[in-house]
Design a binder for these strands. Structure first.
Lengths: 207, 207
DNA sequence: GGTGTCACTGCCCCAAAGGACAATATGAAG
DNA sequence: CTTCATATTGTCCTTTGGGGCAGTGACACC
């Protein structure tokens, strides 16, 4: 699987060496001397890739960069690479979702394995998010009223109840309901509920 | 949150010391000198508790015990505690779901924090699984035929189509459908679909 | 042979959903 | 003022879903 590997490390000779190794393996590579450099290079989160990140770098540390990226909603997988790993940092990084935590010097085998896993994982996550995004996009085209009707429909309310709760008539609800089905591009109540469930709109036990 | 902490360590004096500290903190404690001892003590997976597990112990190692427990479907959270942590082992343990990975000597603060988190996590997981189990139990009371009807209902088929696909009549499908709603204890199609979705019965795009 | 479960089915009726056709009202945008 | 989007509603008709009542047939178990 091809992809772009972002190498963030303050050691210039290390960057050069890694870049060479990764390019030999068929990956595109971009290097950064600091976390800030990386953040400045406004990057495309959707492009297949991952980050090879040193823990100890001047300025923003590796884990700090990880936090920022997570907070910013990035889904680029991160592989940490460090000279000396301490256990709490390792644990924290993995818990926060890092793909791996490797120590220098790293064998090409371990490194390439980790990169391959990271790219595979990102690919799976991206395609999954892609489907949800399509649903969200449809959902966004609903008007306020249609959205209210949608919420009640997927909770199992019948038109009569919805009409009462929204202070309108059954006929009106039917009209909105029709719009909802149309805009969400589904042909059955089951599909609609399924989508709502996947978007996490039903978790709290709303009966 | 009270709970039973299983301490697995081959160092008798360490076991004694830890047991004292944990009991002071209000936890019940059981100790084991080896992973095998622990496995032999056929334990209740549902009871609130966690495992404090040494990595290097004679016989089955800590990570090996972890694998076995996972394979056996156990959901007891594991906190590793070891004298000298190596990075690959740490990474693997956390990836496999360990709650934490601590090094001896461990401060009471870190240890008790980890235990509290482990118990909280297990509690959340257990209550979540509890709900799903209730659904599964209802699902298990369905006859073969009812189950087939269930599968088609939650995929959005209408009675007429279901009847055709099962080679029977619409009236019969209605009868089964009634039984399904009754046995699953739901009052709307939406609830039924919601349950099916949560049980992961709809993920593959079956239209 | 009696009993029970499960699957199947017809007839009839009511409730709910879907939709065609038509129309009113309101507020924002140009 | 005109246009557009949104929300609203009525009448009428068809399709679906839900269910009562009643009965048949297969098969397993005692």
């Amino acid at each position: 699987m091809p992809g772009l590997v972002h190498v963030v490390d303050d050691d210039a000779s290390f960057r050069t060496a890694i870049e060479r190794r990764l390019k030999l393996a068929g990956y595109d590579v971009k290097t950064y001397a600091s976390a800030q450099d990386f953040l400045n290079a406004a990057l495309d989160d959707e492009q297949p890739g991952c980050i090879l990140l040193d823990v100890r770098i001047p300025g923003l540390s590796g884990p700090e960069l990880q936090s920022r990226l997570i907070a910013a909603g990035s889904t680029l997988p991160i592989i940490f690479l460090t000279g000396h790993a301490d256990t709490p940092t390792t644990v924290q990084a993995i818990k926060a979702g890092a793909e791996d935590f490797l120590t220098k010097p790293v064998s090409s085998e371990l490194l390439l394995d980790a990169i391959a896993r990271a790219l595979a994982r990102q690919d799976a996550a991206r395609s999954h998010r892609g489907k949800l995004e399509a649903f969200r996009a449809h959902l966004a085209t609903l008007t306020q009223r249609e959205r209210q009707v949608f919420d009640l429909i997927v909770r199992g309310r019948i038109n009569k109840q919805i009409a009462y709760e929204l202070g309108t008539t059954e006929r009106t609800v039917k009209a909105h309901r029709h719009q909802v089905m149309e805009k969400m591009q589904v042909h059955s109540l089951a599909e609609l509920v399924s989508i709502a469930e996947r978007l996490g709109m039903l978790d709290p036990n709303g009966r």
